[in-house]
């Protein structure tokens, strides 16, 4: 029954990757912007939570709740002050700006927090587990997966059942016409990036509690997130969850065969999907 365990662990890991990917998917869906600093922003958020935990001595979940509005503001400001200036027909400027941001952020964190591995301590939660038939599930992975599902459910509600979501979808489809209807695309973009940073905070909370992290691990998280988005199909948040699960399953299966193959197996799964379904598994009808 080892394989059942492997599958379940892969599923749970997929939840974490889906959380990494949600913000990326959201921003791309609305403004066709790929933020190459996304992974470094996740690590940055993890350090922000860690600082709050250590300085104020608060529970990690409460700390994440405190960090979320700060990171929303940071995302909002980033979009307003920097990214809005480079968005346009040419994809080169936003790519290069976010690449510069990635390099700057990574090295800034290296100076401030050093290269040491850190972890957000969560006390009893670290070792808590529940037995589900033949497999024993860690409480933390289970919570991660549940949070991913909840986050995607909530974002979909925002998208399809609120005025803000209508503005998101309208701007995504046609910014010019949307602005004729009294929507300011730049403000919409700023709110979207802020919201993406809230999902980044959630991802960072679980990243930091689940394992050690240091300033250099951002780019790899960006790559997993990106693979999940592409596998799922552009613009579909549930697709992103499926994509994250596929990467998680492939990595766990690869690691079960040979620990050195974990990461490689995830990448290969991505390439296979790209080969068979270049537009991903669940592409939105219009894109």
């Amino acid at each position: 029954m080892i394989w059942v365990n492997t599958v379940v662990q892969g599923l749970m890991l997929g939840g974490l990757y889906a959380l990494f990917a949600t913000g990326l998917s959201l921003v791309f869906g609305i403004m066709r912007l790929v933020n190459l600093a996304h992974g470094d922003l996740i690590v940055f958020a993890a350090f922000a939570i860690l600082v709050i935990v250590e300085v104020l001595g608060l529970d990690p979940f409460v700390s994440a709740l405190l960090a979320a509005p700060l990171l929303f503001a940071a995302g909002w400001a980033l979009q307003r002050l920097v990214l809005n200036r480079v968005l346009g027909r040419d994809i080169l400027p936003p790519l290069l700006v976010t690449f510069g941001l990635s390099v700057a952020l990574q090295n800034g964190m290296l100076e401030v927090f050093s290269a040491d591995s850190r972890r957000i301590r969560s006390g009893a939660l670290e070792s808590a587990s529940v037995a589900l038939g033949p497999v024993t599930l860690g409480m933390l992975p289970l919570l991660t997966f549940a949070s991913a599902v909840a986050a995607i459910f909530l974002l979909n509600r925002i998208f399809y059942a609120t005025a803000l979501g209508r503005a998101f979808r309208a701007t995504s489809d046609d910014p010019v016409t949307a602005s004729l209807m009294g929507i300011n695309p730049r403000s919409v973009f700023a709110i979207a990036t802020g919201l993406a940073m809230v999902t980044v905070t959630l991802a960072a909370l679980y990243l930091g509690m689940r394992a050690n992290f240091d300033p250099s691990i951002g780019p790899a998280r960006l790559i997993y997130a990106f693979e999940a988005v592409i596998i799922g199909g552009l613009g579909s948040l549930w697709g992103t969850l499926a994509g994250g699960i596929i990467i998680g399953l492939a990595q766990t299966a690869g690691a079960a065969v040979n620990p050195e193959w974990q990461i490689l197996a995830g990448h290969l799964a991505f390439l296979v999907v790209l080969l068979v379904r270049p537009r991903g598994l669940f592409p939105r009808a219009f894109d």
Binding site: V97, L101, V103, A104, N107, E111
Partner: peptide, 12 residues
């Protein structure tokens, strides 16, 4: 790292 950070910011 300060140097690399500055390179990134100059690029931006």
């Amino acid at each position: 790292s300060w140097y690399l950070m500055a390179l990134g910011l100059i690029g931006i």
